[in-house]
Write a protein that binds this DNA or RNA. Structure first.
Lengths: 142, 142
DNA sequence: CCTTGCTTCTACAGCGACTGTAGAAGCTAC
DNA sequence: GTAGCTTCTACAGTCGCTGTAGAAGCAAGG
């Protein structure tokens, strides 16, 4: 198995050098071996782990969730229902967030199209912001 | 015009006491008058301002944007095109975010439904996370 | 061999928008 | 008078990084 510097690991995983060190700090990578002069050494296994983290982050998982998912994947004999439920939960959160954002989109779009371009005193954007009652529909806290 | 304590202002605006002080710190509220013993005093104008901020935050505007919108609404003779463009920009960001989240939703949903419930060694969730190539479609960084 | 310029190292501060904490002081009701 | 709430200031913590400073390592060219 070939060895890589942190920079090479960064290129291979598309995780920035500083972010790799940050993940190590957060306990997601363990403590990689070092050269005599103290530089970190990475192998293909660690790079796969970085890619896993990167992919999970892209999908919106928190670092805590990712820690749990990595622990599961480190022990392949365990049942995957825990992994499944983390992913289910994440899917649920994404769907909730989409619904929220759609409500915001409707409201913003209504606000923007009703702006006639006159003076602020008549501006529908300012007006709508000043009074929630102007909203066509309710929208949640994000 | 009636006067309110910070707690009453909080109840009336649905902005938490600590958050009101935080907004003041950020220059969104000016420096409210104080009682002899140093407690903040709010009137209906300030409470309307708090509601404006709250509503704009609910719609996802940043505090910086809200500062700009408040400055516009403080000077009602100005043209509202600036307000319009801030709102347009926000609408654009919300739409972008919705599109991103829909891609995540598709991927997560694919992941979750393909999970047969066996051992981790065969888990599609873990598998998909480990390898982006398993993804049906691309998904962006959030 | 020596310099140049890139990479890596540690340690810490900063982002946004709050939230939580500590400890003191004021204020209201019984 | 005292119990218990509110308010005050000032600062630390949240999340997931990003940026900074200053020092040291390392590879290539002269």
């Amino acid at each position: 198995m070939a060895n890589f510097t942190i920079g090479q690991a960064s290129d291979a995983s598309h995780v920035k050098v500083t972010t790799i060190r940050f993940y190590e700090d957060r306990g997601l990578l363990g403590k990689p071996p070092r050269t005599a002069s103290g530089r970190r050494i990475y192998d293909a296994t660690l790079i796969a782990r970085l890619r896993f983290i990167r992919h999970a982050r892209d999908l919106g998982f928190s670092l805590d969730d990712i820690g749990d998912l990595l622990a599961l994947s480190d022990d392949p004999t365990r049942n995957c229902s825990a992994a499944d439920s983390i992913a289910q939960q994440q899917l649920h959160e994404v769907r909730t967030r989409i619904a929220q954002l759609k409500a915001l989109e409707a409201e913003l779009s209504r606000m923007v199209t009703s702006c006639g371009g006159g003076a602020v005193v008549n501006c529908q954007v300012i007006e709508s912001l000043a009074d929630h009652a102007h909203c066509a529909s309710d929208h949640p806290r994000s």
